[in-house]
Simulated assay, not measured.
Amino acid sequence: MSKKLLLTDFRAVRSKLEPHDFAISEGQDVPPSDLIDKDVWDGIMHIPEDVSIRISDHNGKRLRLMHGLWRDWIEAIGDPSRPDEMYNCLLDAADCFQCANFNFLHGFYRAAIAELRTVLELVMIGIYGSLNPNNKDYVDWKAGKKSDLGFGRCRRGISGSLRKEQAKWMFKDDDLLAAAYQTLCNYSHSRPDASDGALWQSNGPVYNNEAITLAFVTTLSVYALSYLLVRLARRDFIMPEDSDILFELDWMPDHEALVRAFSDLYGKVPKRPPID
């Protein structure tokens, strides 16, 4: 049987924003018109809520970093009064990062990783559009029309327009970007070894250390790849200072490749990882 959290735990009580907390508001909230039944609420929320408590009990530093990276990304999107071809893609990617954090907190690890696939595709398309703003397929994609524009085609198209010193190597088939995207696709399409059940080792959601670590590290990797890509479209782009840590952590997957690409694109070597 479940038990209530102590009221001294800030997670024990839910809160609701006041109308004036929103940038656009239609006045005072109306009373509930079709309140959910308690058993339905419990059926939807009970297990994810339990997992969120357990994950936040033991992963405070990871959650702080993930939240901080999302806030940094918001700053990196650009000037809304002067949006470039990248702007809307980066804005939508921010929502995906936020959704990934929420899914991670509640134990939906596969769904979190699937959101990261969308991030990488959006950023890649944004770069392609920056380099080819009048391309018909890109224009159709922006207009919501049928288009076969996707990650693979954009990656190959961008590669053809890059010079060697622009980290062209990471756009090759089976290299850094293609390999990362394929891994993300496995989770997006719920392949047998990348399904919810495979991550939970159970029905779920449940607390699972291996899945938590996988989703956390994958999140950081996609942030790192995204910042590399942004630099190609915005040659004077400067990463938010706190996000430099993405290229300083030597335990990151593909760390050497990330450092090489960072050095190629940003013209400097990342700082050494902090020593405890």
Rank of each mutant, 00 (worst) to 15 (best):
residue 261 A to R: 04
residue 220 L to G: 05
residue 56 S to K: 12
residue 184 L to D: 00
residue 196 D to W: 10
residue 219 T to I: 04
residue 242 D to W: 11
residue 193 D to P: 00
residue 256 E to S: 11
residue 83 P to Q: 12
residue 52 S to Q: 15
residue 170 M to E: 01
residue 139 V to I: 12
residue 224 A to E: 02
residue 272 R to I: 10
residue 128 Y to Q: 02
residue 181 Y to P: 01
residue 21 D to L: 13
residue 188 S to I: 05
residue 138 Y to G: 00
residue 17 L to P: 05
residue 63 L to E: 09
residue 127 I to K: 02
residue 162 L to M: 13
residue 210 E to H: 06
residue 97 F to P: 01
residue 128 Y to F: 15
residue 213 T to P: 00
residue 107 G to D: 08
residue 45 M to K: 11
residue 15 S to A: 10
residue 143 A to W: 08
residue 32 P to N: 09
residue 263 S to R: 14
residue 28 Q to P: 09
residue 213 T to Q: 09
residue 204 G to V: 03
residue 134 N to I: 04
residue 183 T to Q: 12
residue 184 L to R: 00
residue 186 N to L: 10
residue 71 R to Q: 13
residue 139 V to W: 04
residue 120 L to R: 01
residue 83 P to A: 07
residue 68 G to S: 14
residue 186 N to A: 13
residue 196 D to V: 08
residue 15 S to N: 11
residue 58 H to K: 13
residue 140 D to E: 10
residue 149 L to C: 01
residue 240 P to K: 07
residue 181 Y to A: 00
residue 174 D to H: 12
residue 260 R to V: 08
residue 115 E to A: 10
residue 47 I to C: 07
residue 3 K to P: 00
residue 190 S to N: 10
residue 227 Y to W: 05
residue 144 G to M: 08
residue 255 H to V: 04
residue 75 E to V: 08
residue 214 L to D: 14
residue 27 G to W: 00
residue 274 P to R: 11
residue 31 P to V: 05
residue 55 I to Y: 08
residue 111 A to R: 03
residue 28 Q to A: 14
residue 216 F to N: 08
residue 229 L to W: 01
residue 211 A to D: 03
residue 27 G to N: 00
residue 18 E to M: 13
residue 114 A to G: 07
residue 66 M to K: 11
residue 269 V to P: 04
residue 232 L to T: 00
residue 180 A to C: 07
residue 87 Y to S: 09
residue 220 L to K: 15
residue 255 H to T: 04
residue 27 G to V: 00
residue 127 I to Q: 02
residue 224 A to I: 02
residue 57 D to A: 06
residue 76 A to K: 04
residue 94 A to M: 12
residue 109 Y to P: 00
residue 86 M to L: 15
residue 189 H to K: 05
residue 258 L to V: 03
residue 114 A to T: 01
residue 14 R to A: 14
residue 13 V to W: 10
